[in-house]
C-alpha cells in the first residue's frame, strides 16, 4: 500500500464531501436565487427552490446591461490574455535562457504586483485622459496587460527553466534559427503551462473590478461593474444580480472544466518552482 495511491476510504470520502459542500453551496445558492421572485429572496424560512422558476430575471438582467457587460468583458479579456501571454512568454524565455537582467529581474517584475492599486489609479486615469483613451477598450486592455505581464513572466520563466537546454541546442545545430528553436521546440513543450497561464490571465481580467470602475464608464462597462451597479441602486434586484452573476461565471467555469487537465499539470510543471 503506497502512501498516495490508496484510493478513497470512507473517511477521506466524507472529508471531501463536507468540504465540497462548503465550497459549492454559496454558488448553488446564487444560482437558486436567480430564479426567485421578488417576494422569495427575503423570507424566513428561506425559499430554496423558487415556485415559479422562470428565466424572466435572466432576460431582464441581460436587458439592463448584463448582455453589454458580458460582451465588453469578453472583448477586454480575450485581448488582454493574448497580449500578455505572447509578450510575457517571449520575455520569460529570454530571462530563462539568457539570464537577461540577471537573477533579480523576474523578482523585480513581480514586485510591481505588490503596488496597491489605489496608488496607480489616479496616475493611470490622468495618463489615459492625456491619450484620450478613457472609456475605451484599449485603456482596460493595456491596464490589465501590465498587471498580468509580471505574473506571466514569473510563471513562464519557471516552465522554460524546466526544459532541458539540450533540445533547443540540438535544433540549433540542425540549422534551426533561435526564433525557430523557440517557436518550434520550446513553445510546444511548455504548452500545458502556457494554457494554465492563459487561464489565470483570463480569470484575472474577467474578474477585475476597481480599475474597470474608474477607467470605464458608459461605452465600456465590464460585467463586474454592471453587477456592482445593480447592488448599489435604491432597489436591490437580487434575482437579476444573481442571474447576471451566474451568467458571468459560466465562461470561467466552462474553461476550468475543459482545461482541468492543464490546470493542475501546468502548475505542476513549473509554477511551483518559481
Amino acid at each position: 500500500m503506497r502512501y498516495r495511491k490508496n484510493g478513497v476510504n470512507i473517511l477521506v470520502f466524507f472529508g471531501l464531501a463536507i468540504l465540497l459542500l462548503f465550497f459549492l453551496s454559496p454558488i448553488i445558492w446564487n444560482v437558486l436565487t436567480s430564479f426567485k421572485d421578488r417576494g422569495e429572496y427575503f423570507t424566513y424560512p428561506p425559499v430554496f427552490i423558487s415556485s415559479t422558476f422562470s428565466f424572466e430575471y435572466y432576460q431582464h438582467g441581460l436587458a439592463i446591461g448584463g448582455a453589454k457587460g458580458i460582451q465588453d468583458s469578453l472583448i477586454i479579456t480575450l485581448s488582454t490574455t493574448a497580449i500578455s501571454v505572447i509578450l510575457g512568454s517571449l520575455a520569460a524565455y529570454s530571462i530563462a535562457r539568457f539570464r537577461i537582467g540577471g537573477d533579480n529581474f523576474a523578482f523585480w517584475i513581480l514586485s510591481i504586483r505588490m503596488l496597491p492599486p489605489v496608488a496607480s489609479l489616479l496616475p493611470l486615469f490622468l495618463f489615459f485622459r492625456f491619450l484620450r483613451l478613457l472609456d475605451t477598450y484599449e485603456a482596460l486592455i493595456l491596464t490589465y496587460s501590465i498587471i498580468n505581464l509580471p505574473f506571466v513572466v514569473w510563471l513562464m520563466k519557471g516552465f522554460f527553466e524546466e526544459l532541458p537546454k539540450e533540445l533547443e541546442e540540438a535544433a540549433l545545430v540542425d540549422g534551426c534559427s533561435r526564433l525557430g528553436a523557440f517557436t518550434r521546440i520550446a513553445l510546444p513543450l511548455v504548452s500545458p503551462g502556457l494554457v494554465a497561464t492563459a487561464l489565470f490571465c483570463f480569470m484575472f481580467s474577467w474578474n477585475e473590478f476597481i480599475f474597470a470602475l474608474i477607467l470605464g464608464r458608459s461605452r465600456v462597462v465590464p460585467v463586474t461593474v454592471n453587477i456592482a451597479g445593480m447592488i448599489g441602486g435604491h432597489e436591490i434586484l437580487w434575482a437579476e444580480i444573481s442571474a447576471v452573476a451566474t451568467l458571468a461565471s459560466v465562461p470561467i467555469i466552462l474553461l476550468a472544466f475543459v482545461l482541468q487537465r492543464f490546470l493542475v499539470r501546468g502548475l505542476t510543471l513549473g509554477a511551483v518552482k518559481g
Binding site: M203, N207, F209, A248, I253, A256
Partner: peptide, 9 residues
C-alpha cells in the same frame, strides 16, 4: 470554483 468566480459576485 470559488476562486474562479469574480470577487464582485
Amino acid at each position: 470554483l470559488p476562486m474562479m468566480v469574480s470577487p464582485v459576485v
